[in-house]
Nucleic acid binder design. Structure first.
Lengths: 332, 332
DNA sequence: CTGAAAGCGCTTACAG
DNA sequence: CTGAAAGCGCTTACAG
């Protein structure tokens, strides 16, 4: 379809102007006569010329590629997050004339990221998951590669963006408490994830804001598999806990399975809520009360942030995006 | 860490040889003295030189990037497939010195792919989903871009690779029949997917191979949502069907939900199997009988195929990969 | 407002 | 076996 082999030199020759002029007409940089510019632009339009971005990149020392780091290890429950993230990133990138290059990393192995960086294939990088001790992040910092981290990190230098998990969890917990729950339990995952700490903080804050609340609350952290969940649920049932809040959908899925197996009815015998909402749980019966984030928007904003950094703009160090609490059948 | 600004010219000067020589030492192409080569290689090693792939690409008219087309619309159940696919692709690409650039396409919108292609950002493309009338595929063919399609297509030109869905379904259906099932039903999705037709064929073949089988079988295709599934299940229960085979995990999830809601026990009152296995269902209780594919391997093989095409090798038009039938609790 | 020329960092005939 | 030179397709001081 396109005349793939058309170059700036061809156009210059055809129009009897210099390559410089053609380049200027296209880029819009440098002074150039109204007339000349239009003539060039018209020719380009007619002949479907599209510039060789690689060559342009070489001359400008840019690639017009953004790196996106994706974990190669993951729970199924996390997948929709990464997928939506990617959609947001790739759309924003695309709109700005950039493409997205993916590097999949393992906890102990970041060779793909290293390749992309040492081969100068990317202008900047977006991290889609951040751990307490994050080797991709460390690598990028050591090599002076501009990046933004989706998620939260203690790293004071890193530009980061995340949803406001803390307040989201605070609000959800609060609304649950205000409905008169007297015995509540929280089940959470690895404290290696900073988001776990943020969620916990939100949870705790909700109680602190209700000085008059008197009841029991239990907290289980670093829970990682179904067997542990089973043991915990047993305890909670014995204690007649009224509501179990799960820190993520993986754990929530486990809890629901365990309850189903034990033939405990939700929400009649026990209520369940999740601090996340991958929409996997929305299709469950009963639908699960949880917090909803606009992940595509998160990806998009992260990308826009990185793009601004690449343009040399100063950007805010931390950005927090909103949330939405969704009360569903699992909590009456 | 790396001396990022080191170029071939620097090395040449430092070593008192020509750029040509340095280039040859690195690429291994062209005659060059054993001694000289080692001297260059040693220097490179010492100084952590890594070539500028962009410049190399410009000179060779290559990008060392592979495009990967990912659908922006999807069911959650499909996600693990794309993810594993991507892992296989990106690993194989990485090992061959290539990077992976993603383009997300919508059913009616392939601008990201078009961008990547017209901007000459990729040497070839891998399609991760193929429809009967596939616009990305059409676009690539019209523009003469080398590509391989994961999945099956009627397109006679296209290089394609897939798991052997037909035989997988034939075997699973057969094993179910051999256990004495007399009333069996199949629920399938859109016939727009060629894989649907392949699965159907496998299903039907299993019956044909058992001429002595006498029983009833029902087939529902183009089922797309939970409501339809509900209606169908109602019919099947009335007819006292013994086993429901679902063509994919999305439908299977629907069926299980509907059954759970109606308090029908699996496998006691009715058996359930799936023609796919995203491992989402493996965690369900009871675990669902299904077919397992090595999707990472599929992605890897697809990538290797494309790489061979780019090297100018002749490749087989169609490749079929294996499968594994997993009998689980949902069918006794 | 426009152009000749050098440069981005590589590769590759061609000649020796 | 080695090198000078042209080329890949763009950009960008510098000069006019």
């Amino acid at each position: 379809m396109e005349d793939k082999n058309l170059t700036i030199a061809d156009i210059a020759q055809e129009l009897g102007v210099s390559k410089t002029t053609v380049s200027r007409a296209i880029s819009g940089k440098g002074r150039i006569g109204e007339q000349t510019r239009n003539r060039v632009l018209a020719y380009i339009e007619d002949h479907h010329y599209s510039p060789n971005v690689i060559a342009k990149g070489l001359a400008q020392n840019k690639t017009f590629n953004l790196g996106m780091v994706l974990p190669g290890d993951y729970n199924i429950e996390e997948l929709p997050f990464f997928q939506k993230c990617m959609l947001g990133i790739s759309r924003a990138a695309s709109e700005a004339g950039y493409d997205v290059l993916v590097s999949m990393v393992m906890p102990d192995q970041i060779t793909q990221l290293e390749r992309a960086v040492t081969n100068r294939k990317v202008d900047g990088v977006i991290l889609t998951r951040t751990l307490t001790d994050d080797s991709p992040m460390r690598y990028l910092e050591e090599n002076g590669v501009p990046f933004v981290a989706i998620g939260s990190t203690k790293d004071a230098q890193a530009v980061q963006i995340d949803n406001d998990h803390k307040n989201a969890c605070r609000e959800l917990t609060g609304r649950l408490l205000d409905r008169g729950i007297r015995k509540m339990a929280l089940i959470g995952g690895s404290e290696n994830y900073i988001v776990t700490k943020n969620r916990l903080q939100g949870f705790v804050t909700a109680f602190e804001e209700r000085a008059d609340w008197d009841g029991e609350r239990q907290i289980f952290l670093n829970v990682s598999d179904s067997r542990e969940v089973d043991r915990i649920v047993e305890i909670l049932l014995t204690d007649q806990v009224e509501c179990i809040v799960c820190m993520d959908d993986f754990l929530c899925g486990c809890v629901l399975n365990v309850l189903q197996q034990r033939r405990i009815a939700v929400p009649k015998q026990i209520q369940v809520a999740s601090f996340y909402d991958s929409s996997i749980l929305a299709n469950r019966i009963p639908a699960v009360t949880s917090i909803r984030f606009d992940v595509e928007e998160l990806g998009r904003k992260a990308c826009e942030l990185l793009l601004r950094m690449l343009d040399g703009e100063e950007t805010e160090r931390c950005t927090l995006l909103g949330y939405e609490v969704r009360m569903r059948e699992s909590t009456k």
